[in-house]
């Protein structure tokens, strides 16, 4: 049994969620290889080779792989599939884009967003926005899997010394082209791996009011998130969205401000260790999952909270 894990990387840096995907793979057992696909990926390959437990890093360096276009990446992964029992990726927008394309090329059914591993063929995954957990087993020759990063403790980024091996076979399928990105830049921690997340909802009333949450985030070293309602209303960009179809977070502390708590939002945050809800409606469903609920007008409570934190 051996496992190939697709390495997530951005701007020449290995994404931390790769460490969670490796953690999931390590529970399956067998030799673990990482695939670094991109252009000029030397730094990422070095970082990948240092991850504890990795036996080999395959590096596909080609212009056609620079932006992770699924039309180019999936056939490359298919060409590497021969020696693997499992092919895995974190359930990021990159993993979600390419892995089903790979699965169909291999004529296997993918298992999406796993949160628990029973054995090499049996996996648990959330369905219905996490309101039910489905355990499925697969007899496919190759298990193509995406992993929910927050469900697996990250492995150590250091301690490994894997061999780095170039792989050929990349080519441009000529179907798609990358044009540009509009990425949110922030000095704050990344939403899905931040130890504390403070999120705002429709109750924030205006994008400018998120500055109140940002001040608290800066005091706590927290990331700022949002509900779908806040993103739809244009208060904050799409990459803030926490929920069933946005990002899934599980920080030590999640503070929900002016968020009613639709099941689609709860799906993205209810595995947080401690949940705080601040909402003026004491019937809001968010209070059903909150460890500490404060029924208050957020425009009074949030400035008071900032002051109290000193």
């Amino acid at each position: 049994m051996s496992i190939l894990i697709l390495c997530d990387h951005e701007n020449g840096q290995l994404s931390p969620v790769t460490l969670n995907a490796v953690s999931a793979a390590s529970q399956i057992g067998g030799e673990m290889h990482l695939l670094v696909a991109g252009d000029q990926t030397g730094n990422v390959a070095k970082a990948a080779a240092s991850i504890a437990g990795i036996a080999k890093v395959l590096v596909a360096d080609d212009k056609s792989l620079e932006n992770g276009l699924a039309e180019n990446l999936a056939p490359l992964m298919q060409s590497l599939s021969g020696s693997y029992s499992h092919m895995m990726a974190a359930a990021t927008t990159t993993g979600k884009n390419v892995m089903p394309r790979l699965a169909a090329l291999l004529d296997v059914m993918q298992i999406s967003d796993i949160i628990k591993i029973d054995d090499a063929n049996t996996f648990q995954r959330p369905i219905y926005a996490g309101n039910a957990l489905s355990t499925v087993s697969s007899n496919e020759a190759i298990k193509v899997i995406t992993v929910r990063g927050t469900a697996f403790e990250a492995v150590a980024a250091e301690g490994g010394n894997a061999a780095i091996e170039p792989v050929a076979g990349a080519s441009d399928a000529g179907l798609s082209a990358y044009v540009k990105s509009e990425l949110s830049s922030s000095e704050r921690p990344e939403l899905t791996s931040a130890p504390i997340v403070i999120s705002g909802g429709r109750g924030m009333q205006d994008g400018a009011n998120f500055a109140m949450l940002e001040k608290i985030a800066d005091k706590l070293g927290a990331a700022v998130g949002a509900s779908r309602a806040a993103v739809d209303a244009g208060f904050v960009p799409n990459d803030y969205q926490v929920g069933q179809t946005g990002k899934v977070v599980a920080p030590d502390l999640y503070v929900a401000v002016g968020i009613s708590g639709a099941i689609q939002h709860l799906a993205g945050m209810k595995d947080s260790k401690v949940i705080v809800a601040i909402n003026k409606d004491d019937e809001a469903p968010i209070f059903q999952v909150a460890d500490y609920g404060l029924v208050a007008d957020l425009f009074d409570a949030v400035p008071a909270l900032e002051k109290e934190l000193g």
Binding site: E10, L69, T93, S176, Y178, V179, P237, D239
Partner: peptide
Amino acid sequence: EVDGGLEHIE
């Protein structure tokens, strides 16, 4: 809509 923001492709 990608994790880091928006990506334009053709």
